[in-house]
Amino acid sequence: MSEALAHLEEIVDHEREHECEGIGAKRLCVRPVSVAVLPTRFGDFHIVAFWNNRDGKEHVAILRGDVVGREDVPIRMHSECLTGDALGSLRCDCRDQLEAALRKVGSLEFGAVLYLRQEGRGIGLINKVRAYALQDRGLDTVEANRALGFRDDERDYAIAAHMIFSMGMKSVQVMTNNPDKMKQLQDLGVRVTGRIPHVMPPNAYNRFYLETKAARSGHFIDFSGRAHLPEQAEPVVVEGMPEP
């Protein structure tokens, strides 16, 4: 067994009874429950599955190398997107973003992708499909999308922060194009020592980002004429993209 895996197993063992007051306004607590090796097409990782005190969503950390007790761990927060991540939907960029994150972390000595399970409740997959349906009818208005607001960033940050503490990471570098993400984590007590821009390689599906003309009031219209909803709560950056 690798040293990294041994460290993670120690943590799972040590946290067996963990249930704290919770983090953030929503008082979220997570507990690492099981760990295993996870070889992927993007590199070799460990996967840690978490319990939480709110719902049946099993959040996971995909870890590269030994992060326990480490400083400056590169991390990427990714919010689950069934349609994009698993089904390869072209209505959003989630899959490209996830792949870019796994490739990047997989190429490093150590790092983590925190995969946050958001979808599945009222606010989640059902409302995302509703948002798509409104879009199909040309009724994807600002207010309707806001009410459908299928993202709960606050919850994401609290869970991510707790995962970082649970895994014993001493400080992190956040892979993001949204500096606000760093601040949100800092406010929850995470030591953030830097930001790593999250840049996706260009491919057949995200080429339109490279044409400034494609942007309509901050929304990018893809080749099929649809706006890409900002499902990962940060601006997309494709390699070679002109500055906004």
């Binding site: 409740r121 009222g122 606010i123 059902i126 409302n127 207010e143 806001r146 009410a147 607001g149 299928f150």
Partner: peptide, 12 residues
């Protein structure tokens, strides 16, 4: 019925 909740109110 559950599954019909929204994230916040509407202001038009």
């Amino acid at each position: 019925e559950s599954g019909n909740e929204l994230a916040g109110p509407l202001v038009v």
